[in-house]
Design a protein around this nucleic acid. Structure first.
Lengths: 227, 227
DNA sequence: AGCAACTTGTAAGAAAGTTGTAAGCCACCT
DNA sequence: AGGTGGCTTACAACTTTCTTACAAGTTGCT
């Protein structure tokens, strides 16, 4: 189920969007101001974001920045009033995927959303928040936690992404480029050790014996694997 | 060998790109204007296209349209100068896969190209990651492993390359130059025994009796052969 | 068959490359 | 200000790959 966060202060526009997108089979999370949008993003981890530029509190750009800080890849579509087109440029620099100027037609916005989702489908695609088990660890993405017996472990969104990727392709080797691309949203720069560092820290928390990892195994010269 | 078409009117940028991409092992086809780009695309059928937006004659968008008329799938990366970012959106609607704004770092562009090629390689296209069988050995490239009955053997990426090459041209003799070129990516230095060493080590692992190899057979004075 | 010349196999150690991780740094968030 | 998380740096530990050296095998010639 694809979740779409709509941040739009005008009630009429927001309701119209909600209705039409719900009809299309999306799950809509409506937010009426920027702060709410950021909160809802954190809580719901949507697959797509529509942001009005002009909103009380936090404007669309600020919301975009906050979201991008958490998630490099989630597609963001800006909604702007006609006069604001210059600002669009700023929007694009923030990592937006597209923009639309009001007034827009219902069909148009659906088409855009579908197009963007199709384009970005290959990366990070079919997001599911279902629980899954790796070795003796139960991962609960919606809580950002994992459980071993009764012991509870905290996980970051990034931890969950890493683990889910390994879980989904268990048995296969995930090379560092793929991992970086899927989790960080950019291709891996070989001189950066950020990825190794992250794996190391994650192992410390989830592996019983981090020196003999059973969940995230190293495949030397190739990547990592879970099985 | 992956061919990349570069359409860029600025000589300096074009040469820089050509150099760095050639270093990375790509074959670069440089074009200095839009018309040339379209011609070269038809003639060379490249695997990837980098398009400058602003070019004399045909601009990047026009080139993109022409290319898409011929080829729906070839990945296209747009290069744009800062001020042109609004146009970027239009570029994306033309079916571009990504865009970069100048000035961009050498590492960044390489990373993007790699990331896009990796992503597009997995859908459809000339997949070379399929499993295959040699004698009683089942090779599973995505797992970097081979199976004999229930026994599991670890393979390095290089092992897989060697085996796949022999498998694809079964019955034919693969001479050492070809093997070195395809697997190591450079011409073979006759005084180096690296290749022999690799074959020897690989046989130890995959052959039941390494002294009587059934998978990698030696053709004295010529090379190696499978079957 | 016997021998010389050449090619290939392989053990062992050297070199190169990859990964793990502690410590410090920096930006952001209270 | 202080805390936090993530990143970079730096170095240690580890693994693979290459070189060296010699053994063994093959070919062609007499």
């Amino acid at each position: 189920m694809t979740k779409i966060l709509i941040a739009e202060d005008d009630d009429h526009t927001r309701d119209a969007l909600r209705e039409v997108l719900t009809m299309e089979g999306y799950t809509v999370i409506p937010a009426s101001d920027g702060l709410q949008a950021v909160d809802f993003f954190r809580a719901e981890n949507p697959d797509f974001v529509c942001l009005d530029v002009m909103m009380p509190g936090l404007n669309g750009y600020e919301v975009c920045k906050q979201i991008r800080r958490q998630d490099e890849k989630v597609p963001i579509l800006f909604l702007t009033a006609k006069a604001e087109e210059i600002d669009t440029v700023l929007g694009l620099e923030l990592g937006a995927d597209d923009y639309m100027t009001k007034p827009f037609g219902v069909k148009e916005i659906i088409a855009r959303i579908r197009a963007i989702l199709r384009r970005t489908a290959s990366r990070g695609g079919g997001r599911t928040d279902d629980d899954f088990t790796m070795d003796d660890l139960r991962i609960v993405p919606t809580e950002l936690r994992a459980y071993r017996d009764k012991i509870e472990l905290a996980l970051s969104p990034r931890d969950v992404k890493v683990l889910r990727l390994l879980y989904e392709r268990r048995g296969k080797v995930i090379d560092r480029n793929t991992l970086a691309d899927e989790v960080w949203g950019v291709d891996y720069f070989p001189e950066s050790r950020a990825l190794d560092q992250h794996i190391s820290q994650l192992r410390k928390r989830i592996e019983k014996d981090p020196a003999q990892p059973r969940i995230i195994r190293t495949v030397h010269g190739a990547g990592y694997r879970f099985e």
